[in-house]
Every structure is written in C-alpha cells, then in structure tokens.
Write a protein that binds this DNA or RNA. Structure first.
Lengths: 123, 123
DNA sequence: ATACATGTTCGACGAGTATCGTAAGAGCGG
DNA sequence: CCGCTCTTACGATACTCGTCGAACATGTAT
C-alpha cells in the first residue's frame, strides 16, 4: 500500500571493502545466489534454487548483505533481497558486470582441474 | 641470457574460471601479492613484501598461477611472476582493473583512492 | 666440488567456516 | 483464536585452507 520500505542494516557505500566483497563472492553457493538474484531481480531465500538448506541460504544471504553485495527488504513476513547494483557499480566500476557476464549458469561438468596437467603454457 | 623463456604450467585462457579467480583473490595475502605485482610489473617470491614466510608465498603464488591470475617465468634459479593482464582482461573485461583501483594498500590507515604516491602500473 | 641462495614440497597444526537440524520469532489466513 | 509459512538464531559437526618448519631440488658463486 505505501511506498515506504524497511530494510535490514547494511554497510554504507564507503564501507564496502573490495576484499570483503571478493570473499563473499568466492563461495560457489553465494555466487550462485548472486547470479540468481541478477536474473530474478529480487527473490526470497526459499524461492532460490540452490542445493543447500534454507537455514544455510539465510546464512549466506546475511554474509552477502553484511559485505555490501545485496540489500534485504522487509515486507510482511518475507525478506526479498536484491543486488546493490548501483552501489557496487559506483564503488567498483565494472566488477559486478564482468563477474556476472562470465560463465553463465553452466552446471554440467565444468570443474577446472587446477592441479592437473596444463597442456598449454601459452603467451 | 637468451631470448627464450620457459614458463611454469598455467591454465589456458578458456580454462580460467571466474569462481576460481575470485577464490584466489579472496585471500588478503594473495590480494596483496597481486597488488604488489601490479605495481612492480614482475617480482620473485622473496622480493615481495608480505607478512608471511617464503614457503607460504610460494604456496600462494602457486594458487594464483593455477587459477590463471599470474604467469611464472623460469630464469635461472629465480621464478619471477607477473599478472596475466591481457588474458584476464580478455576473459573478464574490467574485473582486474576495478579490483586493483579499489582501496589501494591501506597500510597507513584509511583509503586514499586518488592522489596516491605512485600508482604506476608500468608494464 | 663445496657452499650458498632461491623456491618448492611435504606433514602437521589451528582457525575459520560451510553445512545441517532444531527451535524460536513474526506475520498471514482461516 | 490457532495453525501455517517464512525467516533467523543457536549449537554441533566436519571440512577446507592458511600458516609454519624442515627437508629437498636446482642453479649460482667461490
């Protein structure tokens, strides 16, 4: 009814640290959550299709919020979250875009054998 | 000295995974190494000013190499490494730049995004 | 060749954290 | 009112990984 939204506490724009953001984005599940939020625009914990339990999703969402990656809105009983696109773009121009555009959701066999034989020392 | 360089094995351009790169960059020490390499252009393990032992630096350098962030050259007994700028820029345009330009080594407290003494990426 | 320097590898230890199950709080609908 | 759903908080467990010391390999200098 009214346009007034309540939000969960989140770091200020200048309080967003690149190291913290990288740590938040380093986890595969959290990165998957970020990609899902990018596609959906906004989503709640239970609506996300991730291979972990709801309590774990909530835990990850908290990490993402405290690191400054997402904003969480308080609407009734639900807590829909969304990416802080503008803030991240202002703080780290091009970072989120390059991450999201890279390797779109490909879930089939695609784990890079970092320890395996590397056939091409190019350059 | 000869013009022929030998390199340690490293992943192919298409084999670089954004998640793996983010994991590599998530560690504070590794991020510090990356910033040092950005400033120096090329450096060996012992020449880097990082608060960990040499064996740990070697360990981190291996992670960075296997994730596709750095290239390591074989010259005599030394192993100078450098950032794979071109490859990373081609694979994830804007990613490395946004990370490196954000919050330079804040050793003197606070971040000075502009007007730094020598933000000079030579190479 | 011997000695030294530079890097790497290995085993071990400890801190951090990802995951789960359960319980509790808060709003919505019957 | 009572139940149902969504979400978070807490405790417990297991695992990843960052760190170190020591040993080893390799190339350089004396």
């Amino acid at each position: 009814m009214n346009g007034q939204d309540y939000w969960l506490p989140q770091p200020d724009l200048d309080g967003i640290d690149v190291g913290t953001v990288l740590q938040a984005l380093a986890d595969p599940v959290r990165l998957q959550i970020v990609r899902a939020l990018d596609a959906a625009g906004e989503s709640t914990c239970t609506a996300l299709d991730v291979p972990v339990k709801a309590s774990t999703v909530s835990h990850h969402m908290r990490s993402l919020r405290e690191s400054g990656v997402v904003s969480t809105r308080l609407v009734g009983n639900a807590r829909p979250s969304r990416l802080r696109r503008d803030d991240l773009e202002r703080r780290f121009p091009g970072l989120l875009a390059s991450i999201l555009s890279a390797t779109p959701p490909s879930r089939d066999g695609g784990d890079s054998p970092a320890g395996g034989p590397d056939p091409k020392p190019a350059l």
